[in-house]
């Protein structure tokens, strides 16, 4: 028997809510998203609150991972947690981010923009949260042009409910 690819019956739908704009969580969303589309699953990614860093064009190439208040992050090569005092030193976030970037690259994980483009090209739809957009419009003068052009539209929570009907939801 050849593998059952079930092209006709793939009606699974997945929605990922990205609420964080740090490098590790934006990447996690794209790893899952990429896996979904390559299995023929319809995918929608909804960016809200801090998740906007991943779709604001001038920020999306500079996502960071913070060692501060992150007890899971150890001093490299040890089991010693990084103290907040040490982690809070100037340059530590940039250092940790550069290191993680390098490790991801070794594993063939592309940088955020490229990863997003790849998932977009594989058929996913990207959506921006209306409330977050409005808030950032007020506080920092964000406009639609500031968003990455892979973003389909700015939609409300209600729109998202309609969009996600019958789908599975992952909140990140």
């Amino acid at each position: 028997m050849p593998p059952k690819f079930d092209d006709e019956t793939t009606d699974r739908k997945l929605c990922i809510i990205v609420s964080k704009g740090t490098m590790e969580w934006a990447t996690a969303a794209m790893v899952l998203g990429n896996a979904a589309t390559s299995e023929g699953i319809e995918l929608h990614v909804f960016f809200t609150f801090w998740g906007f860093d991943a779709i604001i064009d001038k920020r999306m190439d500079k996502l960071k991972i913070s060692p501060v208040a992150n007890p899971s992050m150890k001093v490299p090569g040890t089991e010693i947690g990084m103290s907040n005092m040490l982690a809070g030193l100037p340059g530590m976030t940039a250092f940790a981010s550069a290191m993680m970037n390098k490790e991801m690259e070794k594993l063939g994980v592309p940088p955020n923009r490229e990863f997003m483009q790849m998932v977009h090209d594989s058929g996913a739809k990207f959506w921006a949260c209306r409330l977050t957009f409005d808030m950032m419009e007020n506080t920092m003068g964000l406009t639609k042009d500031d968003l990455w052009d892979g973003v389909e539209d700015i939609i409300s929570a209600n729109d998202f409910m309609e969009l996600s009907e019958g789908g599975q939801i992952i909140f990140i």
Partner: peptide, 10 residues
């Protein structure tokens, strides 16, 4: 995705 629709990797 065009060449190997839906599940290209497999």
């Amino acid at each position: 995705y065009e060449l190997f629709p839906k599940k290209p990797a497999k």
